[in-house]
């Protein structure tokens, strides 16, 4: 019960940034204590090539399972394998990313192990026998600090909350055989689609870029679309002024008499911020406004504002977001 397991998430054969964050988090916990950091990497044959990056961020051991059945995330076999591994007894803690995959995987593993899980934490520390974690609750308006007493301690970490810091180790790769048939599942994936092939619905999109009358004409709306595209996970919204003019369909209207949305990030471009519009987006977690009128009411609800001309600001912002996204991988 001394090692720490970090689940290293990959997608399509590429290591995700959250994998490094998980390893780095585990490293932080292990430092100054005995025990190793074991990164667990499931994937198709060849996935072991990523072991180097994991060593770079602090893994002592990279446990690799190479099997075609793990090429894509298979929730049932992955959770069974991880649970089995943890149950083998060598671990005092297991770290997951609270990514879409991790949010699916970690509670399954905890359920199989009949133990508690500290989910979506933004910080963690060891305190005596327990782990102390923080976790945003009440839509981020209250921060809970909780003590995790379970052994082993299962923890999933919010992506981006704990930065991945390089702490190179000279580690070893251990190839492990899968348990059972990794391709088997009672839930069968019949089809997948990526967001560029399928437009994100306003209700689901984590980011919404919305345009208002400030864009002046239908033919300028591509500026908004390009910014949304740069985010990669964004949908396009509009004010009633815009849908009335027919620049966008009515189904894109956000507000009291349109859609009510609550994304993580809302970017209001050339929008004045009338009460009817605010009613539809006020509860977004972060609001950014770009408007040339510094007295526009939208700035009263915005977390960050840029006073400026959309035609000047938007192309620069689009480029900057593209670069920031690329840096993340």
């Amino acid at each position: 019960m001394t090692h720490i397991l970090a689940f290293a998430e990959q997608r399509g054969g590429a290591l995700r940034k959250v994998a490094l964050e998980a390893v780095s988090t585990a490293r932080g916990l292990a430092d100054g204590q005995d025990g190793e950091v074991h990164a667990l990497l499931l994937g198709a044959p060849g996935i072991a090539a990523h072991a180097e990056s994991l060593f770079e961020y602090g893994a002592d051991v990279v446990l690799v399972v190479e099997h075609d059945g793990f090429a894509q995330y298979n929730a049932e076999s992955a959770s069974a394998f991880v649970a089995d591994r943890i149950a083998s007894g060598a671990y005092r803690a297991a770290i997951f990313a609270a990514s879409a995959m991790g949010k699916d995987l970690a509670p399954r593993v905890a359920g199989k192990l009949k133990t508690a899980l500290a989910s979506d934490v933004t910080s963690l520390a060891r305190e005596g026998d327990a782990y102390v974690v923080t976790h945003p609750t009440y839509t981020g308006k209250v921060i809970a600090t909780a003590r995790l007493l379970a052994k082993p301690a299962l923890i999933s970490v919010r992506p981006g909350a704990i930065p991945a810091i390089a702490k190179p180790r000279t580690g070893r790769v251990e190839k492990v055989a899968p348990v059972g048939d990794p391709a088997k599942s009672r839930v069968v994936v019949t089809e997948t689609s990526t967001s560029d092939s399928k437009k994100l619905d306003l209700g689901d999109a984590p980011v919404i870029v919305s345009g208002g009358r400030g864009l002046k004409a239908s033919e300028h709306f591509h500026l908004v679309e390009e910014l949304a595209d740069a985010f990669g996970n964004a949908a396009v919204g509009a004010t009633r002024a815009v849908t009335d003019e027919g620049w966008r369909p009515h189904s894109d209207q956000i507000g009291q008499t349109g859609r009510v949305v609550s994304p993580d990030l809302y970017v209001a471009v050339g929008i004045s911020g009338a009460i009817q519009h605010l009613a539809g987006m006020r509860t977004a977690r972060t609001i950014v406004a770009i408007n040339r009128d510094k007295d526009a009411p939208i700035f009263k609800v915005a977390d960050y504002g840029i006073v400026g001309d959309v035609f000047e600001v938007l192309p620069v912002l689009t480029k900057a977001i593209r670069e920031a996204k690329k840096a993340q991988g």
Binding site: Q256, T257, V260, L278, A279, G280, R282, T283
Partner: peptide, 19 residues
């Protein structure tokens, strides 16, 4: 359908606008 949020907001916030 757009008046449901107004009803709900009146219930929760005591105003038809979601404030």
């Amino acid at each position: 359908e757009e008046i449901q949020p107004a009803f709900e907001s009146m219930e929760r916030n005591g105003t038809p606008w979601a404030f």
